[in-house]
Design a protein around this nucleic acid. Structure first.
Ligand SMILES: [Mn+2]
Ligand SMILES: [Mn+2]
Ligand SMILES: [Zn+2]
Ligand SMILES: [Zn+2]
Lengths: 139, 139
DNA sequence: CTATTAAATCGAAATCATTTCTATTTAGAA
DNA sequence: TTCTAAATAGAAATGATTTCGATTTAATAG
């Protein structure tokens, strides 16, 4: 799967900066969710371009709020981010051992609106656990 | 609904301290979710007993991990807590305007385990929005 | 009712992920 | 090329949460 990141950024009304391209490049090739500091490390490795942590934070948040990447609410209370090519509404299962991510296609949230006396603006849904590979390695 | 908090604490293997009783008392009568600082304020008002913030934090976390109260993941990234008498597995809809909470009885998470290649240890699920009362007041 | 002790509390201080600030640079439009 | 709003960098601040060591206390047993 190949991404036209400059085009993507333009469509989001964001300037195409080397920093943003490096962040997107790193996120899209990561096989696990990453902390902002880890993203910085990846960027430095791959793009040999130094990007300040505030810039990383600002862009991860921007990309996340625009739906390009998704935010992982880790039990350790820090934020992690994950690039998911799947553009449809869906959620994630997160392996806390190896940090891989699986899509949850049927989150059952369609049934939500009906039972709420009010208007649902967002819903958070996340499953956390141990993937099969990691389960097997433990046993 | 009346609670035997001393008995509850004993069943959790926790010492029955005035601080804990004051915290439980305050939580159980609150009609909205509360921040740890707000819990401290309530405790001071009702019990006229000064409780340090670290004690509040420690106990809210303890009670939450034992399932006595539930944790609200607010978009502002701070933690809030809410006492819910409903002991069954369920989730919450949170009004971000007036901070009231509604139970979500059917979270659809039964369908979860089937589509995950691994073992789900916990799932987070929370709906955030505006309750009907608050919707109407805006319009 | 003491004595004992592990658990709990306290207040001050530390932590540290995240945000803010200001000066400087730069992408993109004209 | 010129211009300008947007973006970045680095240093510093923020502030919710946690840690620390000293002190108190609930619960248990004698
Ligand atoms: Mn996904
Ligand atoms: Mn509830
Ligand atoms: Zn795994
Ligand atoms: Zn409301």
């Amino acid at each position: 799967m190949i991404f036209d990141f400059p085009q993507l950024l333009k469509s989001l009304q964001l300037k195409v900066t080397p920093q943003r391209l490096a962040i997107l490049e790193s996120m899209s090739t990561a096989r696990t969710y990453l902390s902002p500091e880890e993203v910085q490390g990846q960027v430095q490795l791959r793009a040999a371009c130094k990007v300040g942590l505030p810039t990383i934070y600002r862009n991860l948040e921007e990309l996340s709020s625009q739906g390009v990447i998704s935010k992982i609410l880790h039990p350790n209370r820090q934020l992690y981010y994950y690039f998911c090519a799947n553009r449809d509404h869906h959620h994630h299962f997160v392996c806390l051992v190896c940090r891989t991510v699986q899509d949850i296609h049927d989150c059952g949230c369609a049934a939500l609106a009906g039972q709420i006396d009010g208007q649902v603006d967002v819903h958070i849904m996340q499953a956390l656990g141990t993937c099969r590979r990691c389960c097997n390695q433990n046993a």
